[in-house]
Design a protein around this nucleic acid. Sequence first.
RNA 1: GCGGGCGUGGCGGAAUCGGUAGACGCAAGGGACUUAAAAUCCCUCGAUGGCCUCAUCGUGCGGGUUCGAGUCCCGCCGCCCGCACCA
Length: 880
Amino acid sequence: MTSERYNARESEPKWQRRWDELKIFATRNDDPRPKYYVLEMFPYPSGRIHMGHVRNYTMGDVVARAMRARGFNVLHPMGWDAFGLPAENAAIERKVAPKAWTYDNIAAMKKQLQTMGLSLDWAREFATCDPSYYKHQQKMFLDFLRAGLVEREKRKVNWDPVDMTVLANEQVIDGRGWRSGAVVEQREMSQWVLKITKYAQDLLDALDTLDRWPDKVRLMQRNWIGRSEGLLIRFALDSATTPQGETELKIFTTRPDTLFGAKFMAIAADHPLAQAAAAKDPKVKAFVDECKRRGTAQADIDTAEKLGVDTGIRAVHPFDPEWQLPVYVANFVLMEYGTGAIFGCPAHDQRDLDFVNKYNLGNTPVVCPEGQDPASFVITDTAFDGDGRMINSRFLDGMTIAEAKEEVAKRLEAELRALPGSGEQAPVGERKVNFRLRDWGISRQRYWGCPIPIIHCPSCGVVPVPATDLPVTLPEDVTFDKPGNALDHHPSWKHVSCPQCGGKAQRETDTMDTFVDSSWYFARFTDPWNEDAPTTPEVANRMMPVDQYIGGVEHAILHLLYSRFFMRAMQATGHVSMPEPFAGMFTQGMVVHETYRKPDGGFVSPAEVMITADGDRRRAVLLDGQTPVEIGPIEKMSKSKRNTVDPDDIIGTYGADTARWFMLSDSPPDRDVIWSEEGVKGASRFVQRLWRLVNESVAIAGSAPADRPAEFGAEALALRKSAHGALDKVTSGIERLHFNVCLAHIREFANNLTDTLGKASTPTPDLAWAIREAAIVLVQLVSPMMPHLAEECWEALGQPGLVSEAPWPAVEPALLVKDSITLPVQVNGKKRAEVTVPRDADNPQIEAAVLALDAVKQALDGKPVRKIIVVPQRIVNVVG
RNA sequence: GCGGGCGUGGCGGAAUCGGUAGACGCAAGGGACUUAAAAUCCCUCGAUGGCCUCAUCGUGCGGGUUCGAGUCCCGCCGCCCGCACCA
C-alpha cells in the first residue's frame, strides 16, 4: 500500500509516451471489426486552446475510449480549420505572413492538445490551408461546376467606400466599417454560388431520418430551409400610373385567402419596378438609395423601422378591375425571398399592420375567429393571424381559410392573361412551393482562403483551370499595406494565359468561404493519404458517416446544413455514396465564468483575483489583498471580459485528468458549464480519493482468491450489485452522452466501496474477491474520463497490459434484479407512506398491503376508497 | 424583428414513460485527528411551524388537463444562442 499522493505531473507524460510508442490509437482502414467514427468539430488555429476546446475534446475522447473498449474500430482524428480572417488581421496588425502565423499557431496548439491525453490518431492530421488538402477542394469545385451545382449570381455585399473593400458582417459596427468608420453601402457583385437550393426538399425530408440529432437542431434547420406552399399572382398595373415597359407585378403569397383584405403592394428597393420608378421620381430614388445605405445583416434589416414610399404606381386587384392598390417600395421586403414583392393585408399580418398604421392606409379584417361577431370584429394594433371564417370577402365569405385558399387558387389558375412582351396567354395565379433557403454564396474577396480554380478569359469567358494544373496555390510574397484583397494586389499572380485559346487572361482572385473547407474534412479523414482524389470511395463508404459528431450549437444551422449539402454534391460527383455525413450529432454548451471588475470599472482576470468566504457570501480582492473587486455576472469566457482560464495553467497545476473530470461533472453537456476554482478543487480531491481507494482495495483484498467464489455473502453481494449497477448505468450513460450523470453514479459507487472497505479490514475470501472486482470495475469506469490516473491504478491493481486496451467489463444481469421493491404510497396524490413488497407481488397483494397501513387509514379519514391505482414497479395511489 | 433553447435549495445539477422533488457534487456550519495548519474522516444542511419516526408550503409567474404535473397544454416574465462574409 502506498500513502503517497498521486502525482499527475509525473504520471501523465509517462502514459502519453507509452500510448504513443505503442501507437494504440492509430486506426487501420482494413481493421475487420465494426467501425465507430467519433469526431469533434476541428478548431480554428487561433494560437491557444481554450476551455471550450477542453470540454469538446474531452467529451469526444470519452466516447472514443469507451467505444474502443467495447470492441469497435474507432476512428478519432484531428485537424485544423486553418483558413480565415484572423490570419489576415494578424498580417495587417503584426506584419506576420498568414501562412507562418497559422502554422506556428497549429504547432503551439497541437502541443497543448497533446497534454490532454486525447486518444487521437495524429497520423491523419491535416490543415485546410495545406495545398494537399485544398487541391482536392478545387477539384471538387470543378466537378460540381460540371454537374451544374455551381453558378454565377449577383449578390449584395457590405462595401466600405473609403477602404474600397468588402466587409464581413463582423466588420460592420453600427453600420460603419470597423477600420475606416465610413458608413457601409450595399453593393452588388458577381459571386460563385453552390446550388444548395436544388436539394432543399431533400435536405428537409432527410431530417426525419436523423434520429440521433437533437430535435432543436433539426427544427432550426427545418425553419431555416423554410418551405412554404403558396400562390404566385400576377397583378396587372394601371398603365396610366406605370413607367413605360412595365405592365404587371408578380408576387408570392402564402395567404391568398386574405386577398380581399389587401390595402397595398410592397416591393423591394432593388426590384426592377422600384428601379424604374426611381428613375422618374426623385423621392423614390432618395428612398431606394437610403435602403442601400445599410449593411446586409438580416437582424439589422429586420429591426430597422418599417419604412416605405409610394411610387405612384397603382396595381389592379385580380378579382375587381375597379379596385386599385398603391405600390410602395418598402425596406422590409427582400428581393432574395419569393419575387421581391408582396401584397399587404394589414388585418392579418403584423408587419403590414404596422406599415398601414404609419401611412394611414386602413385595414379590413377578412378572417373572423370562431365565436366572434363579424360586425364588431375590429383590428387596431394587433393583427389576427389565427384560424377562423372568411368575412368581407365576397364569394369567399363563410369559408374556412383552407377552403378560401383553394378557391382563390382555382379561380386564378383558370384565369388567363397575356404575358408581358410575348402576348402568350398564361394563368394569373400559379401554385408554387417556395423555400426561404438561398443558394450558398462562396466568393470571398480575401487572400487567406482556398483559391477558386477559374480563369477569366476575354474571348473564352469563364474557363476552369485544367486538372493537371491543380492545385492553384496561394502566392507567399504578398503585402497587406493596402485594404482589400492581397491576391488581387499581387503584381503577377493573377496574370495567366487562357488554357483554351492561349491569350492573355486573369485568374479569379476571390477565394472560397471557409465553410467550404469544413464541409468535407470529415470525409478526408477517412483517407488523408490519397494524393489523387478527395476520397477513396471504398474507404470513405466504409468509415462514413460520422457516428458521433460533437460541437457547439452555434453551428446548428450553417456548418451542419452546408456539410449535409456537400455530401449530397459529393455523392452526385462520385466521391462518396451516401447523403448524410453525421449519423449522430451532439451540441455541447459553452464554458462560462464569473467576471471581475476593479473599482475603476476595468475587468480583471480570475488569475489576479483572490476569493474569500465571508459567511454565506463570497468576496473578491486583488492578489495584493487590499483592492476590493466586484464579482460580476457569469458570462461566456472572452478576452474582452478577461474571464478566461488558461488550460495550460490548469493542466500544469492539477493535471489533465482533473481538468477533464471537472469538464464532465455537474453541468449537463448540452448546457453551459460554469468554470470555478472550487469545482476544480473538488475534481482534484476525487482524483486523490480514487488513488487512495484503489490502493486500499489492493491492500485489503490482496489475499483474494483468483477464482470466482461459488457463493457470496450479503456484504459481497451488495458490493457486487453496486458495481454492476454503476457499470450498467455508466455504459448506457456514455452512449447518451449524459456524462454528468455517469460521474454521479461513479461517485456513488466509490462511496459504497469506501464504506465496504471501512467495515472489512480482514474480509472473507468472497468479500475480498468482490472488493477486487469492484476496484477493477471502478478503474475501468473512470478510464475514459481520466485515462492517465486509470493506467496508474490499473498497474497498482496488478492488471496486465494497459487499461486503454482492456475490453469493457460485462454486466452480470442477475445482479441488476432487485428481490423486493419499496413503493411510495399516495393518498389523493400526496405521499403518505411506503410499502415494501416482493418483486413479483401482484396487484391484489399490493392493494391489501397498502390498505392495511395506518398512515393510509389515517389519511383517508374514514372516507371510502374509490379506486386504487397501482403503477407496476413505480407507485401506488389510493383515491378516497 | 424572426427562428431555437433554457429557468428546480446558498450554488452546479438529478429525477428513461406524467408516478417518492432535491441523487451526486460545491459552498457553509458543527465535531474528530493534530502543538498548529494542510490533508483526511464523521454529522447537519429547501422554507415555515411544531410534539424532530409530524404537518403545511415548495421546481420563474398566472391559468388548465389528470387519481397524480419539474415533466403535458395555453398565456406571460427573464436570460442565452443563431440569422446566410466570425469560425
